[in-house]
Design a protein around this nucleic acid. Structure first.
Lengths: 172, 172
DNA sequence: AGTCTATAGTTCTAAAATCGAACTGTCAAT
DNA sequence: ATTGACAGTTCGATTTTAGAACTATAGACT
């Protein structure tokens, strides 16, 4: 599977990953949400090589996540600003932050706290159901094919109720 | 920046990305949430090389996201099951799915719909504030250093109010 | 006994991506 | 004339990934 093929898969996860699913891109987006806007700002904050940074920024502009806006003439200089499409990645970022806060912090605790201007409190992000407002748990959700569904490539026999014709079952 | 260094950064995004922030790992996790559990199942669903799949599964087990559980003896065979830590990645997955559903679908529409067993309806995932329950928007959130904060490496002069000593301002 | 299939890997070489460092170019300030 | 800020580009060396073949165990089939 080549990586430009990802964007044509009939799967919203695969398509999204095709655009933002690499390490540097995600870190660049973190910086965007922390208000970094300029080449040097990204470079010094991340330690990314200039070569890759230039390439990733180009891709983010090409995919409509960032906009490249001039902030001065002579010499021409540009800032990279999140578009609405880019801002819509906020839940992805917050979900990542929150998982890290929950499972990856060291003894010092969280490096960053978030305050919701609307209610004035420090908060955690919670993923809820748009219909009933309850927090979402993986076990309480089922999926079904949507209008854009296509048959998945062979998942063969590896799935399901594990019917190994007559092998000794593990006791776990 | 080497990649094992990511997990020691004082940033929950960086640490999380150090664990799940590559393309194959995210796709493997998608499969996990779609109930794939076995080596062959992942391999045929994803088209990943067996070499990389083995490596990524090992890492996911090592980081406590998957558990490797025997399901038969002779020959020994194992399934890869999400731990609670892994299940907690559900909001990350759903945020990615939802962004893809919003910004990356083709004319056919969504490939997959989600039903919430609790309320019985098809839903979208919404990220809300744990304190007031309102949907979270990037612009309505401010950050402050938490107990685990450490000074960030030089973000130098690239930030802030863009005070180019006296250069011609762009008109944008 | 020999062969086939299922499953879960490991090994190897070639191709692609990334790193690290240096280099280019514009313009203001000194 | 030189230096510094900024935004890249170029290039050889290193690391990762792709793609294919190979190993191993054991039941089923002939």
């Amino acid at each position: 599977m080549r990586w430009d093929a990802l964007e044509e898969e009939p799967c919203s996860v695969a398509r999204t990953i095709g655009v933002i699913g690499d390490r540097w891109t995600l870190l660049i987006l973190r910086e965007c949400f922390l208000r970094t806007r300029r080449f040097e700002g990204f470079q010094s904050a991340l330690g990314i090589t200039r070569h890759l940074l230039a390439e990733r920024l180009k891709k983010l502009v090409r995919t409509g996540i960032l906009r490249r806006i001039p902030y001065q003439e002579s010499p021409k200089r540009h800032e990279y600003i999140l578009t609405q499409k880019g801002l819509d990645l906020y839940p992805v970022m917050m979900a990542i932050v929150h998982w890290g806060d929950t499972h990856m912090v060291d003894e010092r605790g969280r490096p960053l706290l978030h305050e919701h201007k609307k209610c004035g409190k420090l908060f955690d992000p919670v993923m809820v159901c748009s219909e009933c407002g309850e927090p979402l748990l993986a076990k309480e959700v089922t999926t079904r094919p949507g209008p854009g569904a296509r048959p998945r490539p062979n998942r063969s026999t590896a799935e399901g109720e594990a019917k190994p014709k007559s092998r000794k079952q593990a006791t776990a």
